[in-house]
Amino acid sequence: MNGRTAVLNKLRAALGVARDDEARTQAVAWRLAETPTGVVPARGRLPEKDRVALFCEKARQVSASVERVASIDDVPGAVSAYLRARNLPASVRMGTDARLKAMPWQTAGSLKVEPGPAGPQDEAGVSFAFAGIAETGTVLLYSGEANPTTVNFLPEHHIVAVDASDIAGDLEAALSAIRQAFGKGTMPRTLNLITGPSRSADIEQTLLLGAHGPRALHLIVIDGS
């Protein structure tokens, strides 16, 4: 008997159920199909203006830096200014996201854009978030050419653009947008929910920023698109 059969048989014996119990099969099929919503905190249920404000506030609480720009055209300038202010090389790693590509990078002076997935030498990466989540100040990104997962983790500085209109009130709303984008039950290889820069409190419970992931997370919220 293989491991699969053995484990499943043990489970059914312990539960005292038969394999083909119709009521149980239906209960499971129903839940997977209907995906009932549980308790959603009232915190995120706000009109867009307040929702975006809550997102910014929550992100700052977890040590992300946040700036708001009026248009998508302002992003390259904001990225350039961020790097300059921290004495970082004028170079960023980014994927092929159409929204990023459409930005006027040539207006940002000498800023060099390196296409493709990130490597260990990259100091700054730029991504465009699929969504934001106001209740916790979280950004949601998924893997692929547009925004490679390595950009989220290898560079020391991660700069994430997010459209204000993509900021959801709560986690359920953001995941349900993923479900709509990919089809029910289908997922990208990796879905990252990122809430602040990386940290550790493993030494004497002292919280320190900058563990293995980025030391800094900078969010650029685009208001007018």
């Binding site: 990208p188 290889r189 809430t195 820069p197 992931g213």
Partner: peptide, 15 residues
């Protein structure tokens, strides 16, 4: 924390 820094869902292999 209200949310840990990284919550990651992995589904299958590289596309």
């Amino acid at each position: 924390q209200e949310m840990s820094v990284y919550t990651t869902l992995s589904t299958g292999s590289r596309r």
